[in-house]
Design a binder for these strands. Structure first.
Lengths: 190, 190
DNA sequence: ACCTGAACACCGTTCAAGT
DNA sequence: ACCTGAACACCGTTCAAGT
């Protein structure tokens, strides 16, 4: 009893999981909480901000790989972590992309890998561009993958033969190899 | 006098340029054409399809580099061509991304570079993943760039210091280097 | 064949008024 | 402080009816 920001975000994520992003409307969130739609606006300034809070909640679950591994492994591991978390939420890629574009997100999803690359000796612009590219490849491929899944669920067996799932991982690997080639080389041992 | 598919697409693109993607609604397109909103549905099955037609129109302007240049230069040139065309239309990256996700587009934007890579000796999955990654990096970075521009126009000088414009180009270069490393090497001279 | 008029079932957001 | 009720200004889409 009594609305709260976390409660609203939780309800929104429930709807996201059960019905998809298109069904996350202020009115449906309010309905889920048995409250009038206008009531939400006392806790959250607008829908865009609610979406940003949802995105932050999801991105907050991406763990940074521990153990002092070599940069290449670290980046691969991190990318797959991100991929796994995003795959566990329906329409998450579209959600995160929209929030990223809006600039309202409170979580910088590429802060960790960018820092790692800088520590590994990459110039800041290279680290920024590389992590950005990595994120875009993950999000872009996943948007397609998830929306295709959505369509398939509606019985629309799309014309395209579905992106083979390994393509995402291969795209990730290409970007990682590109950036590794720019790293100062430290002799193999350790 | 008399609606037509091309006329509808042209009107929609005019609105896109003048007011942005959010203002491209069936009702506003109809209003521009001095016609009732329902009339559009005789020429176009739904809004998604209209968006796909707009995207096709834009992507159709991307010229493939001519002259038998080396793969690296070809890919760089193609990427910048794509970038230039997309930058010439407001909100084009968001539009193309949405259409790509919907699977309704009639133009495959990466057909040309994929073919080139295959001819250069790349295995098909590598060529597909690489061109896909290239497209995602371009679209992803541009979505951010264009939406930031949109916000700036509304006087909202965003908190973030704006993505420095060179980051897009650097991301492109990284992906290209990654794929070039996988190409069978032909000795330097021609 | 092609378009109008009007409706249906929604949206996000605002805001007086209540408690 | 927090929520209701009701409105405002929109959406995409459908469809009888006209021409």
């Amino acid at each position: 009893m009594g609305l709260s920001r976390p409660g609203i975000v939780a309800a929104a994520i429930e709807i996201l999981q059960a019905y998809g992003l298109a069904d996350v409307t202020m009115r449906r969130v309010a309905e889920t909480l048995q409250v009038q739609a206008g009531a939400l606006y006392w806790h959250v300034p607008n829908k865009q901000t609610l979406l940003a809070l949802m995105s932050d909640e999801i991105l907050g679950q991406v763990a940074t790989p521990d153990g002092a591994v070599v940069p290449g492994e670290w980046l691969t591991s991190w990318s797959h972590q991100l991929l796994a978390v995003l795959r566990s939420y329906r329409d998450s890629a579209e959600l995160v992309s929209a929030v990223l574009a809006s600039g309202l997100g409170g979580v910088d999803p590429i802060a960790a890998p960018r820092q790692l690359l800088c520590q590994a000796g990459a110039p800041e612009p290279v680290a920024a561009a590389a992590t950005h590219a990595l994120l875009q490849v993950v999000l872009g491929s996943l948007v397609v993958e998830q929306s295709r899944a959505q369509l398939a669920e509606l019985g629309v067996s799309s014309a395209e033969p579905a992106v083979d799932s390994g393509a995402v991982e291969m795209g990730i690997q290409l970007v990682i190899e590109g950036v590794l080639a720019r790293l100062p080389k430290e002799d193999g041992k350790q």
